[in-house]
Write a protein that binds this DNA or RNA. Structure first.
Length: 109
DNA sequence: AGCCTGACTCGGA
DNA sequence: CTCCGAGCCAGGC
């Protein structure tokens, strides 16, 4: 739905740099919807392809949120890895390294 | 209208 | 570390 409230969320997700990830809460804030992390998940669930890098969104623990179809979880991890995002043994993203950070660049030598 | 569900998060036990 | 409860919003019945 173009122009709908979801567009702001999608727009925020598009702003996540390649090789970085953001939490649902951060996306909500970037979209101007503080405290509505859940709505972000809902909006992303409504995605049907398109140019939204949904795989760069993870939960506050840095883990890929469980979803109805586990196949997508694997896909998300694969897409992240393809972008150079490191995942630990527990399958969690190193937020300290790839987490969206206003202060410190995501990419650091 | 109410009730249930879901890609969430936080604080407390 | 894990489990629970409360707050959160949109949709479907």
């Amino acid at each position: 739905v173009p122009g709908g409230p979801y567009e702001r969320i999608y727009e925020a997700v598009r702003r996540i740099p390649r090789g970085s990830v953001a939490t649902y809460g951060q996306v909500a804030e970037l979209a101007g919807l503080p405290g509505r992390a859940r709505q972000v998940g809902y909006a992303l669930a409504a995605l049907r392809g398109g140019d939204v890098p949904w795989h760069r969104v993870v939960n506050a623990r840095g883990a890929v949120s469980p979803r109805s179809d586990p196949a997508f979880e694997a896909l998300q991890r694969r897409l992240l890895r393809r972008e150079g995002v490191a995942l630990d043994r527990a399958g969690r993203v190193c937020l300290a390294r790839h987490g969206l950070r206003p202060r410190r660049g995501p990419r650091r030598a």
